[in-house]
Computed example of a mutant assay.
Amino acid sequence: MKTMTTVLALALVSSTPAFAKAPANPQIDYQGFSGLVGTLAKVREKHRLAWPEFAKRARAEGALLLDARSPAAFARGHLDGAVNLPFSDFTAEALADVIGPNRKRPIYIYCNNNFRDNRAPVVTKAAPLALNIPTFINLHGYGYGNVWELADVIGMDDPAVGWVGTGAPPRVR
Rank of each mutant, 00 (worst) to 15 (best):
V147S: 02
G38K: 13
A126R: 14
A96V: 02
A24N: 06
A94N: 06
T135C: 09
A20E: 13
A82Y: 09
F54E: 09
A92N: 06
N113K: 00
P121L: 02
A55D: 12
A82L: 04
I28V: 13
L40S: 10
P159Q: 10
A92D: 05
G100N: 15
K21D: 09
L131V: 08
G155Y: 14
L36T: 00
A72W: 03
D67F: 05
A68C: 07
A72D: 15
A60K: 08
Q31W: 07
G162T: 06
F115Q: 03
F33P: 05
N118Y: 11
P17S: 07
W148A: 03
F19H: 14
I133G: 01
L65T: 02
I28G: 07
K21Q: 13
P101F: 12
F74Y: 12
R48T: 05
K56R: 14
N114G: 09
R59V: 00
R103G: 09
P52M: 14
V37E: 08
A92P: 04
G145R: 11
L65W: 01
A94D: 00
I107R: 07
F136Y: 12
N112P: 06
R76N: 09
F33Q: 14
Y110L: 02
L150D: 02
L64N: 04
A96C: 03
E53I: 03
N146S: 04
F136R: 00
A96D: 13
E149M: 00
Y108D: 01
G35L: 12
P101A: 15
H78C: 11
T135E: 08
G62C: 04
K21M: 08
N84I: 03
V37M: 07
T39D: 11
E45Y: 02
N118E: 11
A72E: 12
A126Q: 12
N25Q: 12
R76V: 05
A50C: 02
D89F: 11
A73I: 05
Q27S: 08
Q27D: 15
E61P: 10
E53K: 10
D157T: 12
G145Y: 01
F33S: 11
R44E: 07
Y142M: 08
D80A: 14
A130H: 02
E61Y: 01
V83W: 03
G155I: 07
E149D: 07
N114L: 06
G35D: 14
T124Y: 12
E93W: 09
F136W: 04
I154H: 04
A126N: 10
M156E: 02
I133C: 00
P121S: 09
L139E: 04
P159D: 05
L36A: 03
L36F: 01
P23H: 10
D29Y: 14
K104Q: 09
A130W: 01
S88H: 15
L79Q: 00
G32M: 09
N25R: 14
Y142L: 10
D152W: 03
E45P: 00
K104F: 01
N112S: 14
G32D: 01
S15M: 15
D117Q: 00
W51L: 07
K42E: 10
R69T: 00
F115G: 01
P121E: 13
A60I: 09
A60R: 08
A18V: 12
I99Y: 10
L66Q: 05
D152V: 07
